Simulated assay, not measured.
Amino acid sequence: MIFLARHGETPYNAEERFQGQVAVGLTERGVQQAHELAAVAAEREWAGLYCSPLRRARQTADIVAAGIGLEPIPDDRFMEADAGTWTDRLYTEIEADDPEGWAAYHETDPDFRFPGGESLEELMERAVDGFVAVTHGGRLPALIVCHRGVIRAARSHTHIRGLETFMAWDVPNGTLEPL
């Protein structure tokens, strides 16, 4: 079985700013969330710990690793979506400057692509490839520390409801959920 965990809070999360694949670290609250996640994870036996190599996920995974005694294995397939030109921008700025794109993102139009970045379909395909590799690698149960977009894509895929449900999945920072 695979479990997914979202990294702890970052300044970008608190500001409601797109992070994309930027190297953003955790806030003090995010570090606390990572420690709480580690305590929850320590209640289970794990054979594998994987993570996105992005700073916020790696920081969280390192804290979890100390609690469960496994070294995190970074995998690019678990990185957040490339948000293209939306990276570093506040949600309110994007909504004002690109209302059609913002609406397409929030309505989870299956054809949505971050301007200059990745489509939700590409994100889902990449993440699913990673989950398959973890499963075939045999280090199960596994915990993957990643990002909201990856978890939403995974949920949309595994629940066979499609990317139209991408925004329907609430994924708070520091949560642990089965795939």
Rank of each mutant, 00 (worst) to 15 (best):
D97G: 00
L163E: 04
I68Q: 13
L140I: 10
A103W: 04
S156F: 15
A39R: 15
V128N: 11
T92Y: 02
H136C: 07
T85S: 05
H147W: 13
C146H: 01
F112T: 06
A127R: 06
L143E: 00
F112W: 10
A66M: 10
V40L: 15
I63N: 00
S119W: 01
D109Y: 03
R161D: 06
G84D: 03
L70A: 14
M79F: 13
A133W: 07
P141A: 15
G30E: 12
G48R: 03
A47Q: 13
E125H: 15
A65L: 11
A153K: 09
L70S: 13
R113A: 12
V145P: 02
A96Q: 11
R56L: 07
A57C: 04
D88F: 00
R29A: 13
C51W: 06
G138Q: 14
R89D: 12
H136L: 13
H136W: 07
G67C: 11
G84C: 03
A133Y: 07
L70R: 13
P53D: 01
A47C: 10
A57N: 04
A133G: 08
I160F: 12
F112V: 04
D82H: 07
T92P: 00
A65V: 13
P115L: 07
E118R: 00
E95V: 09
A127C: 12
H157V: 03
D129K: 14
I73Y: 07
D82Y: 01
T135F: 07
H157P: 04
G116C: 03
E36C: 08
P141T: 14
R29C: 08
F131W: 00
A41E: 01
Y91G: 11
S52A: 05
L37K: 01
R152I: 12
D129P: 11
E36W: 08
V64A: 01
A96Y: 05
R58F: 10
R44V: 01
D111M: 02
A66C: 08
W86N: 03
Q32C: 06
E107N: 14
I73F: 08
V145Q: 05
L140M: 12
A153M: 14
L120C: 06
L163G: 01
D82L: 01
D109E: 10
F78I: 13
D88A: 02
P53I: 04
D129E: 15
Y91I: 14
I94L: 09
I73Q: 14
L37C: 04
I160E: 13
E80C: 14
Q59L: 12
F114N: 05
R139W: 09
E93W: 06
F131I: 10
I160W: 12
G162A: 11
H35A: 01
V132Q: 08
A34D: 03
A83K: 00
H159M: 15
H35R: 10
R58K: 09
E121M: 10
Y50E: 01
